Simulated assay, not measured.
Amino acid sequence: MILDAHGHVGTWPDFLIPHPAAEHLLAAMDRIGVAAMGISHLLAVGPDAVRGNAAAMEIAARFSGRFGVWQVYNPHHRTQLPSVGTPGVWGVKLHPDVHQCRLDDPSYEPVWRCGLPVLAHGQTDSPWSDPAQFAAVAARHPHVPLIMGHTGLWPYGFGRAARLVADHPSVFLETCGSKMTGRWIARLAALAGAERVLFGSDACFLDLRTGYGRVALAPLTDADRALIQGGNLARLLGLPLPDLRLPDLPGPPEKGHPA
């Protein structure tokens, strides 16, 4: 099973996105064999989290089972958070750089308490989302599954990102970005463990075919490739994957857990 942890629908003012609709993503997914993709709507990441989240949920309902929604939380607007078990929702999406609010800021405390996995943009040397902030959050909330989008974004920071979260098993390294390579994916697996690496493409910003090709051709064992391309995310989200033996991974906190 191939699962894409990091996708988008919609348009963005700073980038040309030739095919921003869910239908185009679905056609690419079918061609490659991607079973499902986690999406956040770019309207939600940008100016209107409420309308953008609603649009993403409509897409998930229209293409049942093919898209999971990362609902965007804007810390300045205190966007309503989804409840655990909400159909179609995979978790919460944070973009500290767009919202200019540090990942370790107290404004995000409602997110850490909501009981859902969190996908956050991570960018090395950013004042808002440097990987060191992921380590700080994980130290305070070790039972919250936290996915570092882009693994720091820049190649000079990939290894540092893996080392910073090495002692925080609740943090996962996600592979999307135009600078990522198959060799780096294999290095991340060696540094952090293959069970801590997740495939993501950043489609429709970036080409899904290119993103998955890096995983498909990376110098990995078949077992590690299976974990990265979908096994880890399936376990994290509680999706059925009966033919793959997976290590125990941190899940969301139990009801009432102080995290």
Rank of each mutant, 00 (worst) to 15 (best):
Ala189His: 02
Ala136Arg: 08
Arg183Ala: 14
Pro252Leu: 06
His77Ala: 12
Leu81Pro: 03
Arg187Gly: 08
Leu249Ala: 03
Gln71Met: 13
Leu173His: 07
Val84Tyr: 12
Leu103Val: 05
Tyr73Met: 12
Val111Pro: 00
Ser201Asp: 04
Gly159Gln: 12
Ala166Met: 14
Pro106Glu: 15
Asp202Gly: 05
Pro252Tyr: 05
His6Val: 03
Ser107Glu: 14
Arg196Ala: 02
Arg160Val: 06
Trp90Ala: 05
Cys176Asn: 04
Pro82Tyr: 07
Cys204Ala: 14
Pro247Thr: 03
Val144Asp: 01
Arg51Ala: 06
Val144Lys: 00
Pro142Ser: 13
Pro20Gln: 14
Gln100Tyr: 07
Leu191Ser: 09
Ala136Phe: 03
Met37Leu: 14
His77Phe: 11
Phe158Asp: 01
Ser201Gly: 06
Ala218Leu: 08
Ala138Gly: 08
Pro242Ala: 14
Ile17Lys: 05
Trp184Lys: 09
Gly68Met: 11
Ile59Gly: 00
Ile59Arg: 00
Gly256Thr: 07
Gly68Ile: 01
Arg113Trp: 07
Pro142Lys: 09
Pro117Trp: 02
Leu25Lys: 04
Gln100Ser: 12
Pro131Val: 06
Leu42Asp: 08
Gly52Ala: 01
Glu195Met: 08
Pro155Met: 09
Asp130Ile: 05
Ala5Ser: 11
Glu58Val: 02
Asp130Thr: 05
Gln71Lys: 08
Ala54Leu: 04
Val98Phe: 13
Pro106Asp: 15
Arg209Trp: 09
Pro169Asp: 15
Val92Ala: 05
Ser129Asn: 04
Leu233Val: 05
Cys204Ile: 12
Leu246Pro: 00
Arg235Pro: 00
Pro75Ser: 06
Leu236His: 00
Pro75Ile: 08
Leu103His: 02
Gly152Met: 09
Pro258Ser: 10
Leu217Ser: 14
Ala35Thr: 07
Arg31His: 13
Cys176Thr: 11
Ala234Asn: 03
Ala54Cys: 02
Trp112Tyr: 10
Tyr156Cys: 10
Ala190Trp: 10
Pro20Lys: 13
Pro117Val: 02
Asp224Phe: 03
Pro20Arg: 13
Glu174Asn: 07
Pro13Asp: 15
Phe15Ala: 14
Gly149Ser: 06
Asp105Arg: 06
Gly10Ile: 07
Ala192Pro: 02
Phe67Cys: 01
Arg163Met: 10
Glu174Cys: 04
Pro106Lys: 08
Leu249Ser: 02
Pro142Asp: 12
Gly231Thr: 02
Thr175Cys: 12
Asp130His: 12
